[in-house]
Simulated scan of single mutants.
Amino acid sequence: MERARITGILLAAGRGRRFDPLGQRNKLLQPIDGEAVVVHSARHLLAAVPRVVAVVRPGEEGVAARLAALGCEVAVCAEADCGMAASLVHALRHAAEAQGWIVALGDMPHVRPTTIAALVRAVEEGADIAVPVYENERGNPVAFGRRHLPQLLALSGDRGARGIVRDNIVNEVAVDDPGILLDIDTPPDLQ
């Protein structure tokens, strides 16, 4: 399977209410090491896969512009408020021809490109689902092979693909990357 056939999906359409309950500061645009959180997440994904579909919510032109400038295909999801599954399904419809997908989160800027590349290899080598594991704990992103596309497209609500991962055989990929467990949920997480 050629690398171009594995597509990255960057979910960047959440409201981030735990970060800012009033909705005045988008956590994805907050700086870490001089760049927005979402820029780090996208760069790491783009370093491992040639194509990334980034899902944003309507009205988030700042996030969309940064992602487009990096080379991501930006897909605006009008149903983003329906939950993470709506954003994932929206992205999958834009990349349904791929042979597999790496589903990454825009608020996880510390995931290393080498981890993402290891997940790509796992799918290329036949894994239907691959998850990274650091010190016996599963994290993100998650990779899916084409076999699960019908199940992924049928998702709804805010649970994303968690149930698919729970109910199927998963290839655990051991990584030396604590970033798979670190997301930006609150302002102290930016430190």
Rank of each mutant, 00 (worst) to 15 (best):
A174R: 10
A96P: 10
G100S: 08
N171P: 04
P21Q: 09
G8W: 08
V89C: 15
I184Y: 00
P113A: 01
D158F: 01
E135G: 02
G23T: 05
R166D: 09
L88H: 03
E73W: 10
D128E: 11
G179T: 06
N171R: 15
E172T: 08
R112Q: 13
V76D: 08
E61S: 10
H44E: 11
L70I: 03
V170M: 10
L153H: 13
V131Q: 06
G126S: 07
G106K: 06
R57K: 15
V56S: 09
A54H: 07
G126R: 10
L29W: 09
A80M: 03
V56I: 09
T7D: 02
L67K: 09
R121H: 12
R18Y: 03
L45D: 07
H94S: 05
A154L: 08
V89S: 15
R51T: 15
D158C: 06
H94G: 03
L105T: 06
P141L: 03
P188M: 01
L70R: 09
E172M: 09
D177V: 11
D128Y: 02
V170A: 11
G157S: 06
I32N: 04
G100Y: 01
E73C: 04
L119T: 03
T115P: 08
A68H: 05
P141R: 05
A13P: 09
L181C: 02
V120W: 00
H44A: 15
N136Q: 14
N140L: 14
A85L: 02
A80V: 08
N168A: 01
D81H: 13
H110D: 06
A118F: 00
A48P: 07
L153P: 14
A47Y: 09
L105V: 09
L11S: 13
R25Y: 01
E172C: 08
A80F: 00
V120Q: 03
V89Q: 13
L190G: 01
R51K: 14
R138L: 02
L155R: 08
V37D: 07
A86Y: 10
L67R: 05
L70C: 07
I116M: 14
R5V: 06
R121E: 13
I184H: 00
D189S: 07
P50Y: 07
H148T: 04
D33K: 13
V131M: 11
G157C: 05
L29E: 13
H40P: 00
M108H: 08
A174Q: 13
Q24T: 15
L155C: 04
G100K: 00
G16N: 10
G139S: 02
I184E: 02
P188W: 03
E137G: 00
V142P: 09
D189T: 01
G106I: 02
E35H: 12
M84K: 14
G34Y: 11
A95N: 12
T186V: 09
M1Q: 11
